[in-house]
């Protein structure tokens, strides 16, 4: 044991201890770094404020003298009750209903397809699948989620409508299917929300304690009974939250529906005709290079504001439900 003896003391014993804070660059840097990081974090608040400011000044009430906002020219009543949307014609109508109709028909079709399939896949992954299969499937779902919206739009246009919808509905059932139609947009939208629903619902299902499942099996249940009558009800609010988030994504989805459903504002429930969603209108209006200051240009903000409020409402609801769910199991 010559260890310590062989080594000389690192430094001579210290004399005079000083613990007091003193100015040093290190201390100044600490404070500086903290301030910079706080700045970064508040940037997200600034973004929200900018969004709100933008909508309020461009859609609700203009603060720049000499200009007017959208709702200073078009009354809220007209906006909500008029059944026609035709900003580009001489006889301008600004009734949001056709756009809302297009948005909800397409998002509705998407949900009817995407939500059950996503949930069933989540149940399979969390209750039935072997860990290896799950590990293999997760990246595939991630790839599915990562495919850009434009690509889905193209897929709807060149595959879904000509090779899936037309053979079934037009040839077999004799229903006319437009090239641009709400159905194909809804179908690809359904595919697009599957990853969201699946991964969020799976998280909720897996958060259900094992004991609950075991209690179910101990009563002689089959896997079907346990999954559908024990686990799904226990994870219900988590699943609902995932549904809400997915629907809100479907409502805000832009390029796929813009390409697949076309740009024909129509107040109808026929999914085989062309329809226009709020998002598709915004893209279309920006294509024509509408000059700033015109009512057409301002209508972008009015539609954007409506969309923002709807998705925000759904997100807040989803987060609220999700937090309720977390409280139960954490």
């Amino acid at each position: 044991m010559s260890l310590a003896n062989a080594v000389s003391p690192l430094t001579p014993p210290k004399t005079g201890l000083r613990l007091q804070k003193q100015f040093s660059w290190a201390r100044a840097r600490e404070a500086g770094v903290r301030a910079v990081l706080l700045g970064c974090a508040s940037l997200s608040l600034l973004t929200t404020l900018a969004i709100v400011y933008m909508f309020l000044t461009e859609a609700v009430y203009s603060v720049t003298p000499g200009t007017t906002a959208f709702f200073q020219e078009v009354s809220l009543w007209n906006f909500l009750a008029d059944t026609e949307w035709s900003p580009q014609f001489a006889d301008k109508h600004f009734g949001i209903l056709p756009l809302l109709c297009g948005t909800f028909v397409i998002a509705g079709i998407g949900s009817l397809i995407g939500l059950p399939i996503g949930l069933a896949a989540a149940i399979y992954l969390s209750e039935y699948a072997k860990p290896k299969f799950r590990r293999m499937m997760k990246p595939v779902l991630e790839v599915l989620a990562g495919i850009p919206s434009v690509v889905y739009g193209y897929f709807a246009l060149v595959f879904v409508t000509p090779y899936a919808l037309r053979p079934i509905f037009q040839s077999l059932l004799g229903i006319d299917v437009d090239i641009f139609n709400a159905m194909s947009a809804g179908v690809v939208l359904g595919v697009m929300i599957i990853p969201t629903v699946c991964s969020l619902s799976e998280d909720a299902l897996r958060a259900v304690p094992r004991g609950l499942r075991e209690a179910g099996y101990a009563l002689g249940s089959t896997k079907y009974d346990v999954s559908l009558k024990v686990v799904v009800p226990a994870a219900f609010s988590g699943i609902v939250a995932s549904f809400l988030l997915a629907i809100s994504r479907a409502i805000g989805e832009t390029m796929a529906v813009c390409i697949a459903a076309g740009q024909m504002p129509r107040l109808s429930l026929n999914p085989f005709r062309s329809m226009e969603t709020m998002t598709a209108y915004m893209v279309g209006a920006s294509l024509g290079d509408t000059p700033a200051g015109t009512i057409e240009y301002k209508s972008l903000y009015a539609v954007g504001f409506t969309l923002f409020l709807i998705t925000l409402g759904m997100n807040i609801l989803a987060n609220w439900v999700m937090n309720r769910f977390r409280e139960v199991y954490e």
Binding site: S44, T48, I51, R249, G252, T279, V283, T311, N315, A318
Partner: peptide
């Protein structure tokens, strides 16, 4: 900030486009 972030994450991309 946290609540704000989760709401921002759900804002449609077209609204960011407008912004």
């Amino acid at each position: 900030i946290q609540v704000n972030l989760s709401n921002l994450a759900g804002v449609p991309s077209i609204v960011y486009a407008l912004l």
